Amino acid sequence: MKVLIVDDDKLVCSSLKIILDSDKDITVTGTGYNGKEGVKLYEELRPDVLLMDIRMDEMTGLEAGEIILSKYHNAKILYLTTFLDDDYIIKALNIGAKGYMLKQDFDSIVPSLHAIYKGQNVYGNEIITKLPNLLHQSNPAANYSSYGITEKEYEIICKIADGLSNKEISELLFLSEGTVRNYISLILEKLNLRDRTQIAIFYYKNK
C-alpha cells in the first residue's frame, strides 16, 4: 500500500513516516506540508491512501481533499487532526473522505489505513459518538453524501435547479465552463441521471 503524508508539522510527518515504515505492507511514497503540496503530490504519486491534516497554511486539508476528490472520485483520504470541530467532520463527510481520526489515536493509524485501503470507512471513537447528531443536523448537502456528491457538486446542482446555464454557473463559482461540464458529467454519473432537467427534478424531490 502506497501512502502519502501531508501535515504542516514536519516533526509529525517524520513521526508518522517512522510509524508507517514499521509496517511491511506500507510504503510512504512522499510527504507534503500544506494543502497545495498535497494536491500536487497526489497527482504525481497517485498513492493508495492520502493521510492528511486539516488546518494548514496556504490551503487546508479539506480544500485540498475537495480538489482531489473532484478529479479522482475514487481517491481514499484519511484525515488525521487534533480538531474535533463539527463543521470539519461534516465537511469531510460531504466531500467523500474515507476516514477522520484524532492524532492522539496513534495505535489506530496503521489499522485504519489498512481498513481504508480495503474499501472501508474509518472514524475514531470520538467522531463516531458525534455522527448520529451531525447527520441529523439541518444540512441539505448531507442528504447527498450517500451518493458521493461533494459540496461543490451540490452547489452546482442548486444552480442548475435555479435554471442557470453552464456559463452563468462558471462565472458565479469562478470556474471554467469546461470544469462545470466535468462536474455535471460526474453528477449525472453519481445520481444515475440522463440530463440537466433530471438533475433539477432530483433536487426538488430531495430538498
Rank of each mutant, 00 (worst) to 15 (best):
N94P: 04
T81H: 03
D48I: 08
T27E: 12
F106N: 12
T29I: 10
K40N: 14
N74C: 08
I187M: 09
V3N: 02
M56H: 04
S170M: 07
K167S: 13
L50A: 01
T60C: 08
I156N: 10
C13Y: 01
Y203S: 13
K205M: 12
G38H: 04
S165Y: 02
I89K: 03
K167H: 11
Y123L: 00
S22L: 06
E155W: 15
V39N: 05
G148D: 12
E63H: 06
N125V: 11
S165K: 09
L173W: 10
K76Y: 03
A75E: 03
L4M: 02
M59S: 04
D86T: 10
V180I: 13
A64I: 07
K17Y: 02
D48C: 06
N206R: 05
V39P: 05
Y42K: 02
L51T: 05
D25C: 07
K103E: 00
T27N: 12
Y154Q: 08
N125K: 11
F83D: 09
L131P: 00
Y33A: 11
L84A: 13
G30W: 02
Y147E: 07
N166Y: 14
E171R: 15
K91Q: 11
V3E: 00
L62N: 05
M101S: 01
D195F: 09
K2I: 06
D23T: 05
A75M: 05
I18E: 11
S145C: 07
S146I: 13
N133K: 14
A200Y: 12
Y123R: 04
V180L: 07
Y79F: 06
Y88P: 06
E63F: 05
I19D: 04
S146Y: 11
E189A: 12
N74S: 11
I184C: 11
R196V: 12
L4T: 01
L51C: 01
A200E: 11
S108I: 06
K130Y: 01
D9L: 10
H136W: 11
D48A: 10
L41K: 01
L175C: 10
L84C: 09
V49T: 00
K190F: 07
I149C: 09
G124P: 05
T197H: 14
V6F: 01
